[in-house]
Amino acid sequence: MSEGTNRRTVLAGGLTVGAGLAVGSTLARTATAGTTPAPNTRRSVSLVVNGTRRRLEVDPRTSLLDALRDQVGLTGAKKGCDQGACGACTVLLNGRRVLSCLTLAVMHDGDEVTTVEGLASGDRRHPMQQAFMDLDGFQCGFCTSGQIVSAVGLLAEKPDLRRAEIPELMSGNLCRCAAYCNIRDAIATAAGLGEDG
């Protein structure tokens, strides 16, 4: 393994010193294809992931989360518990937020899935991503993809969202670092809610 692909350099201001964090996941995407011979129990499903149609051969036991992470190579959605109890795997399924660990990939032929990687428009962050950044809506970052996708799903579910409703309606997303105050503020900001909103 070459030094360049392994060293993860975190950069301020986007300058190129060493290899950026993204390199790791580029590696992830290229390394996955074809590592696993498909047993004959595999089934073909077609998913539209972040706007791109993907045909996958999946073991019927494979969760949507594992399919996204290991086969599509999108590791933004995280496996925090694999029990539906932490929210780190939240994705949008046909526009609604769901836990991708609690559903099987084989059940979603033809469905549209949006992960955190699909929220930005080109280089422009989604307003929710920007608000999480600006308001420090995370610490370790592990639950963050799920928090952001969940918050985007929340705004779609409730266009008339009030600030006071955010805590209850985000309670499916645990943040063990407990950046909850900032997450709340970030969602309120992205939703254009004032202090009393």
Partner: peptide, 9 residues
Amino acid sequence: GASPQIRNR
């Protein structure tokens, strides 16, 4: 009951 994500499914 549960969480919004779970209620959605």
